[in-house]
């Protein structure tokens, strides 16, 4: 009996002993991922090089000709959103790191739980020319016929920021709270004020977390279809709209995929900095 138990023990031991069992456990997940994600992903890259003119960069050429404005627009909107989200996240996280405010702590998380689609629809209602914001402002200031922010790039950015800042704040606040009090107090003790301490001490220590938050914000903004659909202007548009347009109206998989690969490259370009930093950390 004892030797049977020993055999069982060694067979299923977790200290790197028998990896086979572990691989078996993870296999279903890997299969699903491979079939339903990796395969379409590769297909998208491959298809981007295939057009009715043969294999090559024709799709990319066409994509650039048609959509270079939208590419720049997409990057611009995403970067502006990223900067504003970063600012808000650092301010809110900085405040909550030092002071208790249960109201803020609760309410800043709200947009996180609102689906993108609902956020888009609500912003549409809120920022429309005769929407709630303008109605309120009209009552307060007496100015009627204020331009609506909906369907402008400002409305788009505001909607993105509204939806994205909670996650970034949550992550960055988590990072801030993991910095021990004594590190901050040491800075204050030597003459730094709270703002300086946040910028020079807390943020650098939290760099990995901040980078993760920024990458997540960037990726979900640049790849979002619903919000630009519901509240973005009709020209220029974000890349996802171009992609779906290309498919639904032209059946043009080649150019659509070329646009897709372009968005991959933009994301990889940004994450490169993050990945390089994380890999450096692994070595030390």
């Amino acid at each position: 009996m004892r030797c049977f138990l020993e055999k069982m023990r060694s067979k299923f031991s977790t200290d790197g002993g028998n990896q086979l069992y572990g691989i078996l456990l993870i296999l279903p997940a890997l299969l699903v991922l491979a079939l339903l994600y990796i395969y379409p992903l590769f297909s998208s890259i491959v298809k981007s090089f295939v057009s009715d003119q043969g294999i090559g960069l024709h799709n990319y050429q066409k994509a650039f000709d048609l959509y270079w404005v939208d590419v720049l627009y997409t990057i611009g909107i995403t970067v502006i959103t990223l900067l504003i989200v970063f600012m808000i996240a650092v301010i809110v996280a900085g405040y909550l790191r030092f002071k208790r405010w249960p109201f803020l702590n609760f309410i800043y998380r709200l947009p996180l739980f609102i689906p993108f689609l609902i956020a888009g629809h609500s912003m549409r209602v809120f920022l429309a020319p005769h929407g709630i914001l303008n109605t309120l402002l009209a009552q307060i200031t007496g100015i009627s016929e204020l331009p609506g922010l909906a369907f402008t790039w400002i409305g788009l950015v505001l909607s993105f920021v509204w939806k994205q800042f909670p996650l970034a704040t949550l992550l960055i606040l988590g990072g801030f709270q993991s910095v021990e009090d004594s590190y901050i107090e040491a800075a204050l003790n030597l003459g730094s004020n709270k703002l300086r301490a946040i910028w020079e001490i807390i943020l650098p220590i939290c760099r990995p977390t901040v980078l993760v938050a920024m990458v997540l914000t960037f990726v979900s903004t640049i790849g979002c279809l619903t919000i630009p659909l519901l509240i973005g202007p009709s020209k220029p548009v974000m890349l996802p709209i171009d992609m779906s347009f290309r498919i639904n109206y032209f059946g043009d998989w080649g150019v659509a995929n070329a646009l897709g690969v372009i968005s991959y490259l933009i994301v990889v370009g940004l994450s490169f900095y993050y990945l390089r930093y994380m890999l450096k950390k692994e070595e030390t």
Binding site: Y37, P40, G223, P240, S244
Partner: peptide, 8 residues
């Protein structure tokens, strides 16, 4: 980005 994957 999810959209290109969905398309394919």
């Amino acid at each position: 980005p999810q959209l290109p994957v969905f398309i394919n």
